[in-house]
């Protein structure tokens, strides 16, 4: 599959925007105005952008605790996301969710919640809706290597295969669950996709730091899903640059090495595409994105907090 220049530029722009948003969160975080945990996606932008670029707006995306990149890649509103992290009434959940609970219904980013593996069956249920109503929607669930250790994920894979549901299991393998490396959690001789294969699901592997490879694989997967041939599992090895939760680097605390981090940094998903983009365009785009981000933060900071009364609303529909 040939990816044209316009598409490459678009993929790059989308990754750069996510990177800059996450860096802005890291920069503002010490101000202590964002009073909720943040799990930054820096280093993992290609998986989010490559997968979502293969989707239509009507398709649905679900995610877990590290969802900023997925939300933005699917077209989630930036202002509403930043305001939500600031706990403001203008946030996408009116302040009831925070960074770990993002949603933008209009953009098809249905929801993210932070219990690992727990949104996987929910996404499968959304795929059941799509199938029962013959809506032709594709559903994507972003999950990580840790989720593959959760029983509910295997229950979900089994059900999705059984019912031939149009759902893409987009698995970012970033090698760590918080500080616990993959090698203490799963046997070395078995890959994540091999584990999925046992359920009889179609599996694919793409370099999670190569946005074009992810986009190509996801496009193929979507075609497969739309033809009613059942779910697809896509494994994408990648790496988180910052600490599990929070704005800092943490290579010094001893669970991983600086060398390992540097080797992944050399494989930066953004850098890999930068040579394809004219430097003139880089500058003007960076400026434009910076302004958009500044506006989003200004919006969030100046928005009112929800009043105390709102806390007891929306318990029941």
């Amino acid at each position: 599959m040939m990816i044209d220049q316009t598409k490459i530029f678009e993929l790059w722009r989308c990754m750069l925007r996510i990177r800059m948003v996450e860096e802005a969160i890291a920069e503002h975080y010490p101000e202590q105005e964002m009073r909720c945990p943040v799990h930054l996606s820096i280093g993992q932008e290609a998986a989010a952008v490559g997968v979502c670029a293969a989707l239509q707006r009507k398709d649905w995306v679900f995610s877990g605790h590290r969802s900023h990149a997925h939300y933005l890649a699917k077209g989630g509103d930036l202002k509403c996301m930043v305001a939500e992290i600031y706990g403001k009434s203008t946030g996408c959940c009116g302040g009831k969710g925070g960074s770990m609970h993002l949603t933008d219904q209009a953009a098809g980013f249905i929801g993210a919640t932070p219990i690992v593996g727990s949104t996987v069956p929910i996404a499968v249920g959304a795929a059941l809706t799509s199938q029962l109503r013959e809506e032709g929607r594709v559903v994507v669930i972003f999950l990580g290597d840790g989720a593959m250790e959760a029983g509910v994920v295997h229950e979900s894979l089994n059900f999705a295969v059984l019912k031939k549901l149009p759902v893409l299991f987009a698995c970012e393998n970033n090698l760590y669950s918080v500080y616990s490396p993959l090698k203490v959690r799963q046997p070395p001789q078995r890959s994540l996709s091999q584990l999925a294969t046992g359920h009889g699901i179609q599996t694919m592997l793409a370099d999670g730091n190569d946005v074009c490879a992810v986009f190509e694989a996801s496009s193929k997967a979507c075609k497969f899903l739309k033809e009613g041939d059942g779910p697809v599992f896509l494994e994408m090895p990648t790496y988180r640059w910052r600490e599990h939760c929070g704005p800092n680097y943490d290579n010094d605390i001893g669970y991983r090495t600086e060398e390992e981090f540097e080797s992944w940094q050399l494989n930066d998903p953004l850098e890999r595409l930068t040579s394809y983009v004219e430097s003139k365009k880089i500058n003007s785009l960076t400026k434009k994105i910076r302004q958009e981000i500044q506006e989003a933060f200004a919006f969030a900071k100046s928005s009112p907090f929800p009043d105390g009364q709102a806390a007891s609303e929306d318990v029941y529909a």
């Binding site: 996987v120 929910i122 499968v124 809706t129 029983g151 229950e155 059900f159």
Partner: peptide
Amino acid sequence: PLSENAITGVALGSAITGM
């Protein structure tokens, strides 16, 4: 299937999308 946890999630996922 005997997957009560996932099936409850499936029920929820279908419910929030209209079922």
